[in-house]
Amino acid sequence: MEEILKVEHLHKSFENLTVLEDVSLTVNKGEVVVIVGPSGCGKSTFLRCINGLEDIQDGRVILDGQTINPPLQKGDNYRQRIGMVFQSYELFPHKTILGNIMLAPIKVQKRDKNEVRAEAEQLLEKVGLSSKKDNYPRQLSGGQKQRVAIVRALIMHPEILLFDEVTAALDPEMVREVLDVILELAKQQRTMLIVTHEMAFARAIADRIVFMDGGSIIEVSEPERFFTEPRTERAKRFLKTFEY
């Protein structure tokens, strides 16, 4: 199996507060890795370190054989090779849906406008939002916005997609439409690193589950195994909080 992302002994701290301690993880091409863990365990920060939104104090992030964090060269534009979807969508409110999707491919990748538009429309069609292409983000529901955010990441043809609790801000009835889109991506053999609190979804989509607590990876398991017989006490305790 081909390695696409490799994180080695990552250490992240904010001043005196250690957030991530000696975190190592390898993601293979076409693999879906889901990170779960209690709030504040460092999983979102971990994603942010991967695409360099946070600087790191020690360790390395390697994308496709190339060290990207700490960045070797200034101005190296590796971020366009990593797609990121945020919890709060972060669409650009002053641009239409098409404008949101087309901006980066045209300005960053210098691609042809007509080609980009055609792909944008095709992708919007796939997530069922063709009719919204000329609307502004404020006119969309949370679930629709998040689907647009996914399309906006996809159109860059990233090698790996990072999802940071993408359904956490959504009303329950909108969670499904977003998860269905991600499930569809998994079927297309996309490489994805997903942080989520949706345990049923994690179980259904993951090739591997990574359980984090207190800034470290505690356990890495097959999903069935993790949810039925977790190896560690902390994972057992964590999973218990989801039972009623």
Partner: peptide, 28 residues
């Protein structure tokens, strides 16, 4: 600030994030 991060995560440079994302919103 996360708008700027959102722009950067799409590969935009600091200047592009300012020019296309921050400045127009700030102006509005």
């Amino acid at each position: 600030a996360i708008q700027s991060e959102s722009a950067k995560s799409l590969g935009m440079t600091k200047w592009q994030a300012f020019r296309y994302i921050i400045a127009p919103q700030a102006f509005n």
